[in-house]
Design a protein around this nucleic acid. Structure first.
Length: 278
DNA sequence: AATGTATCCAACCGCATGTCA
DNA sequence: GTGACATGCGGTTGGATACAT
């Protein structure tokens, strides 16, 4: 027995969205907030599948999306994050405010792959092409280290090194206070509940790499967000054994210093996030 | 100007996962 | 424990546009 389709597709529009459809979706979400994508199309008067609505909103209509070309800084950050996370586009997008996983994925496939290849670097392995084995003294290794070196020091280092490279599939991310109206549930985001158990530390590391900048929680029927600075504090605080001066991943990787990192500069993203909902 | 080719990116699809009854 | 359902993710597709011939 297969799963039933997510929606009745017979009478659904497909393909490019019209301005009218966009407007209906934006109006509805402004009024009611995100969530419950299955019932949203009908409620909003759209002849679209819920998944399609979600995608359109997440990748195109969200007001906090950054438009325009990727900067050199973003390029380098994507490369470094990809060397750490692989094709975990949503996690990578979580560290690039205003960019979507789809956008980064497309950009990777159309630009960065080519860029790396032109540098003689295999975009999949982040190693020099023509060198199949790792030599600790080689340039190749320098590149790998340059990409992967995280400088994790202190008591947590050992646990971190032992962590499996599983990014998302484990853990107790049952954080959402579900708004059970319309039998809607939500899933997948990380909250402070995830940080309550010290034994979950490694899991929390995995979960926190991505969504720091856009970590939502449901409160009653309205969605709010953790501001990125707070998310970074929580993430870093757990990561570095409760130190309060923890920094975000960008800084940790060494791409930025605190003063030049966008994530660290944003002190209160909540204002931005909420204003787009209201 | 017409045609062919390359590139970009929005959207789709299938599957994995989490939640709930 | 199990199945149905909702959502999210990553790979892929195909139409639009840019560029080359």
């Amino acid at each position: 027995m297969g799963r039933s389709p997510c929606c009745e597709k017979a009478h659904m529009n497909k393909g490019a969205w019209t301005k009218e459809e966009d407007q209906l979706l934006v109006d509805y979400i402004r009024k009611h907030g995100e969530g419950c994508w299955r019932s949203l199309p009908r409620a909003a008067g759209l002849q679209r599948c819920g998944k399609s609505c979600r995608l359109r909103w997440m990748n195109y209509l969200r007001p906090d999306l950054k438009r325009g070309n990727f900067t050199e800084e973003e390029d380098e950050l994507i490369i470094k994050l990809h060397s750490l996370l692989g094709n975990k586009w949503s996690l990578i997008a979580g560290r690039l405010p205003g960019r979507t996983d789809n956008e980064i994925k497309n950009y990777w496939n159309t630009h960065i792959k080519r860029k790396l290849l032109s540098r003689g670097i295999d975009p999949n392995t982040h190693r020099l092409i023509n060198e199949s084995t790792v030599s600790p003294s080689s340039l190749q290794n320098d590149i790998v280290n340059e990409s992967l070196h995280l400088d994790f020091t202190g008591p947590d280092q050992e646990r971190l090194v032992k962590a499996e490279p599983v990014v998302q599939k484990e853990g107790n991310n049952n954080n959402n206070n579900n708004n059970n109206n319309n039998n809607c549930t939500s899933s997948g985001t990380t909250s402070d509940k995830d940080f309550q158990n010290e034994d979950d530390w490694v899991l929390n590391l995995e979960l926190s790499v991505g969504p720091a900048a856009t970590t939502y929680r449901y409160e009653s029927t309205r969605k709010t967000s953790l501001d990125s600075a707070e998310s970074n504090r929580r993430w870093g605080s757990e990561l570095y054994g409760g130190r309060s001066d923890a920094v975000c991943l960008c800084c940790r990787i060494g791409l930025f210093r605190n003063e030049s990192c966008r994530n660290c500069r944003i002190s209160d993203v909540r204002t931005i996030r909420e204003s787009r909902i209201l």
